[in-house]
Design a binder for these strands. Structure first.
Lengths: 207, 207
DNA sequence: CTATGTGAATTTATTCACAGCA
DNA sequence: TGCTGTGAATAAATTCACATAG
């Protein structure tokens, strides 16, 4: 396993490959070629091979990749080898849907804490997770939760982000439609739903 | 207004600029410099200027950009000048949250139709939108809806996408965790929630 | 004197093309 | 012969640096 720096775009695609690998594994295939994986995930085969080559040599020429082994290696690179606990902040419509979202488990994520500032929600339970007061974000440190999902209104997001950083959170998935200013050692990945929809018309006919 | 091709990455950022512009407009600022917009949206100023220059020259050296005019121009480029109707397919947890999502309105989107294949949901109303049978996707053509949001389980997504394409849909926002195979003239933008979360640990300390 | 707009330089990402292994 | 892995070539995106306009 090689440890030179892996391009961001490659890191972005690796989880996709994991999903593809899971599909082939579940179908009982023990080997997969870059081209069949390519077809499944919608990325061209040569790009997949280049991506994989960034962290090592795992394929067999003329045959393909060993599904189980490649899965293991990709998971190691992405640091998805052990389960990760995550916290959710903001249990509105979107937050509630995220609490129930089955996709996170695929990658070993478990949302074990939820916070909201609305008195009426605090204390309630959604999907087996009890909603706590947002003022208690500080408890995340001793609970060893360093990953959080923000789904609060834009106006509240920066404050929440700062609270999370103070509590030792090192990775944030931000659904709030705003930029978060955080220290360099904290990574933010933003999913800006409306913004993604807003770029569709550009590619569509006038109507 | 210039009409040479605009880079994809620029198109991706334009909706962000719109949001920033709306912020400054609402604060009563009639002019904004690339650097102050930069600070708000988290993109460096020189990149913003380059992005804008791709479709024309709108700023005043020494002063900045006219907020109202730049807003108008960006909206025109993104084809967001008139309201757009959209359909939602899949009214589960995530779909319901999307129906209630206030952010779409910012860009003039209105979800006016919702579909699900679950008999128990069909006929019900969520957020003033009546849920129809997924088998009735074909009606979208005469209702002049050519934009759709998919939020169904992965296994059903390709079928739904094909139904949408048959109904004349030209743009799809896909929340289902899978690749969609569609004709070249249909644009798909994918939001793969778990996949985005899955790349966070790579950037985080081991824990 | 400030902030835009843009060629040039640089960096990053993608694709090509093929040597070499099973 | 089939498919990987990778240098080389190309393309795309970003950043620099500064001429230029108000």
């Amino acid at each position: 396993m090689r440890y030179r720096r892996i391009p961001d775009e490659t890191v972005r695609r690796l989880p996709l490959y994991l999903r593809g690998l899971a599909y082939f594994a579940q179908r009982g295939e023990s080997r997969v070629s870059s081209s069949s994986l390519a077809e499944f995930v919608g990325v061209n085969g040569c790009k997949i091979r280049k991506d994989i080559s960034h962290f090592g040599v795992f394929g067999t020429p003329g045959v393909g990749y060993d599904v189980a082994n490649l899965t293991r290696q990709v998971r190691k690179i992405l640091k998805l080898t052990s389960a990760r606990k995550a916290a959710l902040v903001g249990v509105g419509n979107l937050g509630s849907a995220l609490l129930a979202y089955p996709g996170f488990a695929t990658y070993g994520f478990d949302i074990v804490a939820a916070f909201d500032s609305d008195r009426r929600k605090i204390g309630r339970t959604v999907n087996k997770v009890r909603i706590e007061d947002s003022a208690a974000l500080g408890t995340l440190r001793r609970r060893r939760i360093n990953l959080a999902i923000i789904a609060v209104p834009a106006g509240a997001a920066q404050d929440i982000a700062e609270g999370l950083v103070r509590a030792g959170v090192k990775g944030i998935l931000n659904f709030s439609p705003c930029y978060l200013n955080v220290p360099r050692n904290v990574k933010v990945v933003a999913i800006d739903i409306a913004t993604e929809l807003a770029r569709l018309p550009y590619y569509m006919p006038a109507g």
